[in-house]
Design a protein around this nucleic acid. Sequence first.
DNA 1: TATTTGACCAAGA
DNA 2: ATCTTGGCCAAAT
Length: 112
Amino acid sequence: MKKSTSEKNSFAKDCYELLRRVPQGYVTTYKDLALALNSKAFRAVGQIMKKNPYAPEVPCHRVVCSNGNLGGFVHGKEAKKKLLEKEGLSFQKEKILNFDKHKFLFPIQKKN
DNA sequence: TATTTGACCAAGA
DNA sequence: ATCTTGGCCAAAT
């Protein structure tokens, strides 16, 4: 079964769509984003964020590593940490405290 | 078209 | 607990 031509560019697009749904005070991970797209392109997700941070429309600062580590950020990790702290998250060095507690799961996510 | 690159991940030592 | 290693996949070069 061949994929339709229209869903060729869907990866990056869907990425932003999903990320845009993440509310303040919550975070998601590169892994979960990829899995939500039925893919394992964990790294590609990060690449996309770096290249096309569609600016404040998409909260790229709410995307972190699945192990609770802060992850990366174009404007520097410290800026990212500050933003998340403002949204109510707390940190231990580079790790997020109560990580899974603030982790946002997408409506149609495969079983954890 | 082929190769390299990463804001990653999970398992080993 | 930290560090290394191999793998993974879309995008850029």
